[in-house]
Structures are given as structure tokens and as C-alpha cells.
Computed example of a mutant assay.
Amino acid sequence: MNNKSMKSQKKTDKLSKYKPEDLASSIVFPGPENENESRLELVSQYRKEWESKRTPKDRLISQLLQLKFQIEEVIRSDKYDKEKHFGYFLKEYISCLEKKNKEFAEEVDVDPTELSLFINRRRDPPEKFIIRLEIHSNKNFPAIMWYKLIEKEKEYKLMYNNDIRASEYGHVKGKLRISI
């Protein structure tokens, strides 16, 4: 056996006591322990960088678009969510603008107390107020969208308010004797 063969044999003998995984890990740099965590960290880092570069105008546009999509989703939905009513979305709209209720009320020429009544579902807003919202939003939030929110709530009340039905029975003197 020549010198080269003997050296090769000695190396093979030394390496044979190690598992192939151990040999591979000693040669190849190990990857992250959990690939999903490192990907999440990269995404998080990217989002932070992206967010830091956004202007206040960009943020406002994003918030308003998100709000508009939420309103459209509520309008399209067959189910009614009691928490997502006209007043809720009006409050969110004002919040996106980073305004106080009083300041916003001045901008749309309505008494702050009346605005509070709309937000807290104590009073339905008149059509003129809905038109003012459309104008204030530069038609980004059309009056018909706000109106559909109000109608969605009225529809729900009409369908499920059994107290009104019970109180109105006494006012009906005669009714059809058939069902179709």
C-alpha cells in the first residue's frame, strides 16, 4: 500500500466513528433553528422599515381605505353585527382624521351634542347630515353608503323587534284569515 492509500484509510477510519449528519453539520453552516420564526422576523423587519417611510398622508389613505372596506363588508353581509352600526363607523371616521368630535362637528356645521346623539345611536342622522359626510370626505364615502348602513340597522330592528309587534297588535282590527 502506498503512502497516499494509507493516509486515506486513516482518514476513513477516523471519520467512520461520526454519523453523516454530524459530518455534514461540521462542514455546512447551520440554518436557523426554526425557519418560520426567521421568516416572520424578516417580514416584521420589512414592515417596520416600510412603515417608517410612510408619510402621514399615506397612513391616512390606508386607514380610510380600511374603514371604507369594512363599511362595504357590513353592507354586503347577510348577517347584522349590532356593534357595527352607523355611529360606530362615524366615530371611526372621525378617529382616522385625528379630530375631536367638537372640531369635526364644526367642520360639518352640526351641534356637537347632536353629533354625539348620532354616534351613540340616540338619534338617526337626517339626510342633510349624510350629504355633509359625503362632501366632507370628498365623495370618498358616498352618502348612499352611509344611508345603507342606517337602513341595515333599521331592517334588523324591523325584523327582530318583537316588542313593537306586540304593541301594534291592538291597533289592527281585522286581518287576513289566510296565509299565502
Rank of each mutant, 00 (worst) to 15 (best):
K17P: 14
Q66F: 12
F89L: 05
V108N: 03
I75S: 09
F86K: 00
F118P: 03
I94P: 03
R132K: 15
I75W: 00
S116T: 12
S26D: 15
K68C: 07
S38E: 10
D111F: 14
G87W: 02
L67S: 12
K19A: 11
I144M: 06
P112F: 12
E107W: 09
I119R: 00
E83H: 10
P30W: 07
F104E: 07
E73R: 08
D124P: 01
P32N: 08
K84P: 06
K82S: 09
F104Q: 00
N120Y: 04
L115C: 05
L42I: 08
P56C: 04
H136K: 10
I61W: 10
K99D: 04
I150E: 11
E33A: 14
H136T: 02
P125W: 06
M145E: 03
S137V: 01
D81L: 02
W50Q: 11
E33M: 12
F104M: 03
R47D: 14
E51H: 13
S116K: 04
K91N: 15
Y147F: 15
E134N: 05
F89N: 02
I94C: 11
Y147V: 09
P30Q: 12
M145Y: 03
S137L: 05
I71F: 02
L60H: 04
F129H: 03
P112I: 07
L149Q: 04
E134K: 06
I150F: 07
F89S: 05
I119A: 02
V28S: 15
E83S: 10
Q45S: 15
Q70I: 08
F141P: 00
I119L: 00
I61M: 09
A105H: 10
T55W: 07
I75C: 01
L97P: 04
F141K: 01
K79E: 10
P112V: 11
I150R: 14
L40H: 09
L117D: 13
R122I: 06
E92M: 14
E41I: 06
N101L: 05
N138F: 08
E114W: 11
K48E: 09
L23N: 03
L90T: 08
L23G: 00
S95Q: 14
Y46T: 11
S116W: 04
R121L: 00
T113K: 03
K19Q: 11
D124F: 05
A24G: 01
V28R: 13
F69R: 10
N140Y: 05
F69N: 09
N120T: 05
I144S: 08
P125K: 15
K53H: 12
Q45K: 09
E37G: 03
P125T: 01
I27A: 15
D124I: 13
R121N: 04
I135G: 02
S52E: 15
G87D: 00
L117G: 05
E106S: 08
V108H: 02
N120Q: 01
S16Y: 09
K53Y: 04
F129G: 04
Y80G: 02
I94H: 03
Q63A: 10
M145F: 00
L64F: 03
L115A: 10
P32Y: 14
F129T: 08
N101W: 14
K19R: 09
K139Y: 13
R122Q: 11
A143S: 01
F141I: 03
E41V: 13
P20N: 06
L149R: 04
S137C: 01
S116H: 06
Q70S: 15
I135S: 11
